[in-house]
Computed example of a mutant assay.
Amino acid sequence: MAGEVVNLRQMRKAAERAAKEREAAANRAAHGRSKAQRQRDAESEQRRNALLDGARREDSEAP
């Protein structure tokens, strides 16, 4: 006669958690970078800075 008894508060909270997880997944896809990507970018920046520092001119007349 009756279906399964459901706690509406638990169902509401579960639905809210699922919605937040979907939003978080979308944000990770749009803004997130993997650790390998961040590390590769940091190494590239270090190489670029080393190259620039190596090409820096030393002025004898520093103010």
Rank of each mutant, 00 (worst) to 15 (best):
P63T: 06
A42K: 03
A62R: 15
R17Q: 10
R57W: 08
A24C: 01
E58H: 11
A29Y: 01
R57Q: 12
Q46D: 08
R33M: 07
L8V: 14
A18K: 14
N49L: 15
R56W: 05
M1N: 12
S34C: 04
R47M: 01
A50G: 02
K35P: 05
L51M: 09
E58S: 10
G54F: 03
E21I: 02
M1A: 15
H31W: 09
R33Y: 00
N7Y: 01
R47S: 01
R9M: 05
H31D: 05
A18L: 04
N27C: 05
Q10G: 08
E4G: 09
R38D: 00
A62P: 00
R48W: 03
L8H: 12
A24H: 02
A55M: 11
A42V: 07
Q10R: 10
A50M: 05
R56Q: 09
R56A: 10
E4A: 14
N49E: 14
D41E: 15
R40D: 00
A29N: 11
R9Y: 05
D41H: 07
V6G: 06
A50Q: 11
E45R: 12
H31M: 09
Q10H: 07
R47F: 00
R17H: 06
K20F: 02
R17Y: 07
E61M: 09
V6M: 06
N49A: 13
Q37H: 06
E4C: 10
V6I: 15
R38I: 09
S34Y: 01
H31L: 11
Q10I: 05
N7E: 14
R48K: 14
A50D: 06
R47N: 03
R56P: 01
E23A: 14
S60F: 11
R9P: 00
L8D: 12
D59H: 10
S44R: 12
V5H: 11
G32N: 04
A2M: 06
K35Q: 08
A15S: 13
R9G: 03
M1G: 15
